[in-house]
Design a protein around this nucleic acid. Structure first.
Lengths: 287, 287, 287, 287
DNA sequence: GATGAATGAGATTTCATTCAT
DNA sequence: AATGAATGAAATCTCATTCAT
């Protein structure tokens, strides 16, 4: 998609599971960092967080309505630049887009698209409503942009990963599930945005619904291809492919949503393990 | 809740999965009645099926552009009664409440709470916004009422059913899952409303969130009790109880949502079977 | 068109050229009442103006933002009912629609469509923005409604009148011009709204442009039919019919706009006479 | 006004009626060059026609969705120069001003002042909003500048021309009308801008209204002087001078607007002829 | 019991304007 | 000379809610 978005997408990969703009309650944070990968990322972020709004050259002129960015403690009116360098236009641009994207991801995931106002997003991003329209052109396009981000950051890597797996169909499915759930626990924002949006925009006839259907169809297609091949090789019992693919997606999404729902009450890592085990061996494993 | 609500709530359990206000596409109807259990439920429903004139025919006295100064003057003020009998006040009352509840369920499931306006609901019910305020007191209370309905029609029977099952913990869990999924496929409206609402209202601090947490906690408690007992008897490997309970809920909800998402593209019955099998035996069943 | 609008349209015929919601400056008032017809109408209006907000039963609950209706001097918060009777819903409806229509006509004529905000209209009508959306569904539809009003109150009577004229084509054209200009001077609001809108929405591709083109085409068609018939009978020199029709419209509209532009600086009656004479005999009449 | 503006204003008289930024549809182009006078004017224009690459080709470096994070990065920062010569600063300056003026004229005429955004203008001119503020200081000043342009290019020559006419008052009036209408058909942009603006800004109290009143007063004064003199010499029937002047302006403006309204549906040349004839001899010429 | 009128708070969107670079 | 980021005020529009009838 757009190179700019691309540029940002790549960077925003480092959106730590911690960096939830203060919008996700503390409890969820608990279970985020149980995996190696997480640590690295959290570290990257942390070391960036040390930078305490060092150089105010970047700042936006006035942000009267723009309450201080939620993320940062310092209540400077000027937005705290994430990068210490004197911001060029391009940096400014990317920074703003990232702020807006992050805030949107966090809020859309926490409250849903319809229940989130652009004012909230702008405030959380330390910018104004106008800036949202400057970068994205409407609330809808904003979400479409996020979906693209999510697709590139979550779906594509997943399908790429699965594609590279060698072995039986079962291996591939297990690999799919493993990769997806670990990634989901690790980088929940984007995956959750995708899942929640797919639920909120079911059965509509707008651009968002269409894009979501396309994205999910990519996943279904990949899974069905694997299953079909597996059937031909006798690795998979010949149940209905479509429903099998749906079952996989259902388990994955259900797990993410459950984790999201219960927040700190459960341990994401353990939940993943439990679902895994069941998924592979059923609830009567001893059998 | 409001006493009125309550009185009606118990009855409205008979909200047939068919009578979806024309809001759910035809596809779902296909897969509803494929299981024995269905029949029983359908029967419950059927005995009220004297009621002819489904909503569609009655509904929307006025067009979409309702309030515009459009021709309307002489439209019949009285709505066509659903039941042919001379309507007593009580019947009128119950009829109106049922219409509103049905319309709300259908729309909240289809579009979500925030994206559904009271106008839409009133229109779909063949009444006016005012009547919603007459029976329920606000949009929030309306949803709370539906949640109560759903709890009584879906959750209570499920837990009752599970409670009566004799056998190992695994048997009970399997029974839970079986009952829930069949019921869910059969009477999706209420269960879906519960699930979708639980996602839309995650992490809030309002009456709705609280009630949902309570309802889900009932389920978690029941499951955890079963699991704990099973562990003591050595029927369940001693993994974390909480996460095990969550896994069960996740699988169940994920399946419902997936079915909801894919609509006519998959066969609900087959999906349930597939999820079942996997749930019991894992994806490597031939083993 | 819609009976409601119809009902209102018929009444608002008595929208005196004086009753300009205080939005047209005093000067224009000067030249309005120079014709017999005017006098009658002005009288009708005047006698209604005596009614000094007699019964406040009608009133709107609260009109905090709704500044007191511009037209009336008394600064009662409640809107002053134009008719003394206890307002039924229908009366309320018609009254509100009339208020909004009148205010819109006045403001659209005075400032143009784009430069007029709905807030201004609501304020001038003594209602709120919301009520505009209750009766009309958007700013665009509001204007479309006004155009319909104008067509029914101005264009249709004009064409009817011309149709009844017996005599030569020249007689008919003269009759057209006479009727239109007298009416225009008498009831300028609607005709001016039509003319100004036709200029403001030239060359667009929206519903308004289309409707205007249709309305003007009615006029062109009627004129061209007359001219063609006249040519056949040798009453009209065989110049191009289309341009001849356009010339007639141009003279008429130009005169209205000029009167509108110069306001109190010129005498509408005299202007009409002058244009008439020139139109019939040219600027070298002594010849 | 700004001296810059002034300097350029005089030159920009050569804004050809053809070079309408692609914003005026083809039809108008058809009827432009049908009169002798045209040729002279076109010639004036032509000698500047070395300038290749009309706006169309150059314009809009960026697409309509300008500010979205869309691919753009490497677009040439520098606009393609209209003149091939190595642009000095002064040339650049004049070129930019001309682009902006042309785009503004075209858009203000096509859509009106209020309905045209600075973004549209900038886009049509191949520049950015900022540049408008660099050269003009606000949207209002931009229009004031255009009005000055129009006055100098349209009104002054007209009055000069009329002043030089020798003969009776009738001759002068006829000359006024002839010159104005031919010029108007030839160079419609500026005259139309004047006329349309005079309608859009009627009755206001801002700088634009005032300037327009002044400009029109110049015309009225000139006409009234002629008429008064004519009356004294008995060449003009002693009707009211003011209304006579208004009639002349009304006919002229009405004709221009009608031509503007009907676009390709009528032949401007024929319309002018028809209006002329009627203006001189009335609709009963055979008499 | 139910309606339809009306409101006001807040949502999305537009846009003239400012300013650092 | 000109850009592009950003703003804030105001515009259009939506919608839950109130209330007289």
């Amino acid at each position: 998609m757009s190179p700019v978005r691309d540029a940002v997408a790549r960077k925003s990969g480092c959106l730590s599971s911690r960096n939830t703009c203060g919008l996700q309650s503390a409890r969820t944070t608990v279970s985020y960092d149980f995996l190696m990968v997480t640590l690295r990322i959290v570290n990257r972020d942390t070391h960036r967080t040390k930078v305490p709004a060092p150089l105010k050259a970047t700042a936006s002129k006035r942000s009267k309505t723009a309450a201080t960015p939620v993320v940062r403690g310092t209540t400077t009116k000027k937005r705290a630049p994430k990068s210490p360098k004197p911001a060029t236009n391009l940096e400014l641009r990317e920074d703003s887009i990232r702020r807006l994207s992050e805030a949107s991801f966090a809020l859309f995931v926490a409250k849903g698209y319809h229940a989130t106002s652009l004012d909230e997003i702008a405030r959380a991003a330390g910018l104004t409503k106008g800036s949202i329209y400057f970068y994205f052109n409407s609330k809808q396009r904003l979400l479409l942009g996020l979906l693209e981000d999510a697709r590139e950051a979550v779906v594509s890597p997943l399908l790429d990963h699965v594609h590279k797996i060698e072995g039986s169909a079962t291996d591939k499915i297990a690999g799919f599930f493993r990769f997806s759930s670990l990634n989901g626990i690790e980088q929940p924002q984007k995956l959750l945005c995708l899942i929640k949006t797919s639920i909120e925009f079911r059965d509509r006839d707008d651009a968002i619904s269409k894009r979501i259907v396309e994205i999910y169809d990519e996943i279904y297609s990949a899974l069905e291809a694997i299953l079909e091949a597996g059937k031909k090789r006798g690795e998979i019992a010949s149940t209905s492919t479509k429903e099998l693919a749906s079952m996989i997606v259902a388990t994955n999404d259900g797990m993410m949503l459950e984790w999201h729902r219960r927040g700190a009450n459960i341990d994401g890592r353990k939940l993943v393990r439990t679902v895994w085990t069941t998924f592979l061996h059923g609830i009567e494993p001893s059998n």
